[in-house]
């Protein structure tokens, strides 16, 4: 009885904390219904009275292609990230390569280069290869945000896989590739989900690369769709915020579904001993 009460008390505290945390998000939703004339009203409207649906109408009529581009870019980024980083994580964790140390250090450094510097370099690379303003070009650039992180996660996770499991596979006559493919990868499912989720979210919300590398073509992601409402001399804030609200729905769904694995995935290997 007392314990149930205590648990309920925690729920109340949790709800209050969540409300506090999400207030800016509420404010964004509020702005998505506000006319531009009321945006700077003093005192502000706490709820969207006399609101407008113009923002949402604009989104539904203009933004759907951008959303599907973003989805495609996100998924391809996930695929590229996994292909590059999962084998590397396995090698660094289990095969103890000579020079692996230098490689890991290079990854650490890579992670520190500010996006805008990377973007300028990429612009030159993509211009000369003709990949500017294309989806593959942006996918490659977006994956650079996630790859160093992904290798780190995979290495940490895979090094916690018991050596006996791999030894058993080897005595069964499985080659290293088969060991990797049919034992290491399935066991690392949580790490795969975690890496995928992070890679997807980073690609989904990337703006620096998109605006530098893809702002000219017909394949633009949603962050640029938002930016089109910020014109040279005018800004349609309700449309911007409505787009953000709509765009965050698929990402939220994904996050809620993936939550379970993420919790187990990121650091499961790191705490054991």
């Amino acid at each position: 009885m007392n314990k149930a009460l205590k648990r309920r008390g925690k729920t109340v505290v949790g709800v209050v904390l969540t409300a506090l945390m999400l207030f800016p998000v509420y404010w964004m939703v509020n702005a998505s219904f506000t006319t531009d004339a009321n945006l700077r009203k003093n005192p502000p409207n706490l709820i969207p009275i006399g609101g407008t649906l113009a923002g949402y109408r604009a989104v539904l009529s203009q933004q759907l292609p951008y959303l599907s581009n973003s989805l495609l870019i996100g998924l391809l980024t996930v695929a590229l990230t996994l292909v590059v980083s999962a084998p590397a994580g396995y090698a660094l964790a289990k095969l103890r390569p000579k020079g692996g140390g230098i490689l890991s250090f290079a990854l650490l450094v890579a992670q520190m280069i500010p996006g805008i510097i990377m973007a300028m370099g990429f612009y030159a690379i993509l211009l000369s290869t003709g990949w500017i303003n294309t989806i593959p070009g942006l996918v490659v650039a977006d994956s650079t945000i996630a790859v160093p992180f992904a290798v780190l996660i995979f290495t940490a996770f895979m090094s916690a896989i018991p050596e006996e499991l791999l030894q058993a596979a080897v005595t069964d006559g499985a080659g290293r590739f088969r060991t990797f493919w049919s034992i290491v990868l399935p066991v690392s499912r949580n790490a795969v989900v975690t890496v995928s989720l992070f890679a997807f979210l980073w690609a989904w919300s990337d703006f620096v690369f998109a605006s530098t590398l893809d702002s000219g073509g017909g394949n633009q992601p949603i962050t640029l769709g938002i930016y089109h409402y910020i014109g040279n001399n005018d800004q349609q804030w309700n449309a911007i915020m409505a787009t953000a609200v709509v765009a965050s729905i698929p990402a939220t769904v994904l996050l809620v579904i993936a939550q379970k694995y993420v919790a187990a995935g990121i650091t499961a290997g790191s705490v054991k001993d």
Binding site: D36, A37, N38, L39, R40, K41, N42, N232, N233, D234, Q235, W237
Partner: peptide, 21 residues
């Protein structure tokens, strides 16, 4: 555009702004 929004809210007498508004 911010300065225009402030003017458009109806509480400000003047706004220094351009033809585009």
């Amino acid at each position: 555009p911010d300065n225009w929004n402030e003017f458009a809210a109806g509480n400000t007498a003047f706004s220094e702004n351009g033809t585009w508004e």
